[in-house]
Every structure is written in structure tokens, then in C-alpha cells.
Amino acid sequence: MSEILNKLSGQGVSIWLDDISRERLRTGDLEQLIREKNVVGVTSNPTIFASALSKGDAYDTQMHDLAVRGVDVGEAVRSITTYDIRWAADVLRPVYDATGGHDGRVSLEVDPRLARDSDKTIAEARALWWLVDRPNLFIKIPATLEGLPAITQAISEGISVNVTLIFSLERYRQVMDAWLAGLEAARAKGLDLATIESVASFFVSRVDTEIDKRLDGLGRPELKGKAGVANARLAYAAFEDVMNSERWQELRAAGARPQRPLWASTGVKNPDYADTMYVDELVAPGTVNTMPEKTLDAVADHGQISGDTIRPFYEQAWNIMAELKEAGVDYDDVVRVLEDEGVDKFEASWNELLESVTKNLVP
């Protein structure tokens, strides 16, 4: 095992892999990453599945059988993706059992074309929860305004949720409110709150990509590469505020578990930046960092883990956000653009996935 990854885990950061494929599962690669790289969870998204289906022959047999059965492309995609998620959940089940359900989790996203429809999102979440039928599943629901009621409803029904595509601090607070409301409704129904887990996926590198582009136009390059980490650090401060609230303390006393902040989009987009910056600079207890394998390998090799790199830097983070505002960066517009682009990108990947399956549904 990597000493650096051991140190990261020891700081209270759960290491999750931001990738899944049938090939990774059938070769035992995921099991190896669990043993050797401290991986204790897996996240997926439409882009990851579209990429997996475009490589190799791992899906050929199932694709053939689906074609022989004459299923439509929507059912085919659901069958293919849930098969992989169920398999990954079984591989991670020992981690889930060993950590009392804290880790060993696998995330599956609802159809991103439903991101602006609350009722259809919750219906899809219920269907996927039933279809995978594993206690260590997370259903990924996007943090759009329409996604908020779906988050509350899913949690209230005992469905564990990974809230995805969070960019703004205001939306993150709304997400935590939706999660708390769901727990309160679950408690009123008599559900065991200890069985309902949630994480909130706060995106990091995409914030820098968008703001850096604007800083170039504003002639303020000295501020580049600072916004993503500062934004995430302030998200953790908001998380701590909720953890100290009376509302949460009442739910905690009833058996509820925290909704952990999850740092997503941690692969560095700008080659001028350290390739481990979104891991090294976002270390704090009770968090998750989901990494593409390239980032995981980089951290294992030369990550700089030096204790808590979030809570001592709240003031610095606020100062950076103030400097960005003074420079002319419109934060509200940035996060709006990023949310819209995030939904559009996942929808485009979903359509690519549908097209790929359609082409390969050959008896």
C-alpha cells in the first residue's frame, strides 16, 4: 500500500475511484485498487459509462442477449449500467460491512435528461434503487432547483443519495436543507435513520477552469488557480455550521449520520498546476475525495499530505473570493454557467451512450 494514501486515509478522507467499467470488474482491477490503493468507494456518471462501452469487448455478450430479446435502447442501457453497479457493489461489500456502512459505496446517476423534472427524477431514483437492490448503493441526483425536492423525497423513503453537480455555496446550503428535511420525514415515518447515508458532491476543478478563463479576460492572471480550492473550503465551513446546528443534533440523536462533503472533479485540467492540488489542499476529517485513476496514481506517488488543509484556511478562502469579486468575477454567473454546462455535458454523454448501445444491439 502507498504510504501517502495511508496518510490521506488516516486524516479522515475516504478515497473513492471516479471510474467503473466491466473490464475493470472482470479483471479484478477494482479489487486490486481496494487492496493496494485504499479505494473504499466508486462513483460513476454517464461520461464514464459512455467511455467504458467504447472500449474492448466486455459488453458484447450482454449486448447480444439484449438484442435477441428485442429490448429497446432505454432498457438496454439500464440493464448494462445496473449490472456493472451491482457487481461493483458486491466487490465493495466487505468494505461496507467493515465500516458499518460508512464506505464501500457505489454511485449510479439518474438519467440526466430528467435533471429539470422533480417527479421524473424521484421515479427514476426509486426504479434504480429497486433494480440494483444493494444496501451500499448511492443514487446520484443533480443539485438543480428541481432536484432538491427529489433529494428530500428519496431520503424520506430510505434511499441513500449522492447529490451531484454542486458548484455554489448557496446551492450547497439548499442541498443540506433538503437532506435534513428528508431525514426529518423519514424519522416521522419510523425509518431507521442509521441506514440512510448521503454525500454531497462539490465540484472543484471546473470552478477554476471557468474562473481562470474570465481572469485572463480581466487581466488578473495572478488570481488563477485559487478559486476552486477556496470555494470548496468555504463549503466545508458551511458543512460545519450545519453539523453544529440544533436541527442536526436532534437528528443525530435519533441515529442519523452526517451527509459528508465529497470533492468531485479533482482531476487537474490545467497542466501548469500540481496534479495533486485538489487532493493535497482539501484534506479534512469526514470527507470523501473521488479521483480518476490518473489522479489516484499521482497522489500515491508524490502527494503532499500534511494534515488538515481546510479549516486553518477559512479566512484566506474568504479573502480570495473577495479579491475575485473585486477583480470583476461574477460568482453567481459562474456557478449558474457551470450548473447548466454540467447538466448539458452529462446529457450529451447519455445521448452518446444511447447511440453506442443502439449501434451494438445486434443479434
Results as ranks from 00 to 15, higher is better:
T358V: 02
T164W: 07
T276C: 13
A143S: 15
G190R: 14
L251G: 01
D340Q: 09
V110W: 15
P261D: 05
G182H: 04
A327D: 08
D333G: 00
T82M: 10
I141Q: 06
G28Q: 08
A115E: 15
A67Q: 04
D119P: 04
I34E: 03
G41K: 02
V77G: 12
S21V: 06
G158I: 12
E170R: 12
R22M: 04
F167H: 10
G12F: 06
L66W: 13
L361W: 07
G41D: 11
V68P: 09
V68G: 04
K120N: 05
V175S: 01
D119E: 15
V40F: 00
Q62H: 13
R220P: 06
D308N: 14
R26L: 06
R24E: 12
A264I: 05
D177F: 00
R247T: 01
V334R: 02
D97H: 11
R86G: 11
L251T: 06
L262R: 01
Y273V: 01
L223Y: 15
Y83I: 00
A188R: 07
N162K: 10
A188D: 07
A89D: 14
G147Q: 09
N351C: 09
R22L: 03
T144Y: 11
N360Y: 05
S51C: 00
T99W: 07
G28R: 07
I34C: 13
A254N: 10
A284Q: 08
P292A: 08
L262V: 06
L361M: 14
I48K: 03
A254F: 09
A58H: 06
G182Y: 09
M291P: 06
D18H: 04
A230C: 07
E210T: 04
V334H: 04
T309V: 09
L148W: 02
L30A: 05
S205G: 03
I20S: 10
A115K: 13
L53E: 09
F138L: 11
K345F: 08
E109D: 10
L169F: 00
P285A: 10
P271L: 07
I196L: 07
Q153Y: 02
A52N: 09
A188S: 08
M321E: 10
M63E: 09
D18G: 02
T266L: 11
I151Y: 00
G158R: 14
D272Q: 08
S14K: 11
L128H: 04
E23D: 12
T358D: 06
K226C: 01
D29T: 05
D117L: 01
Y96M: 07
R311W: 01
D119G: 10
G217I: 11
S198C: 08
L30Y: 03
K224D: 08
E250C: 01
A186F: 11
G70C: 09
G219C: 08
I305V: 12
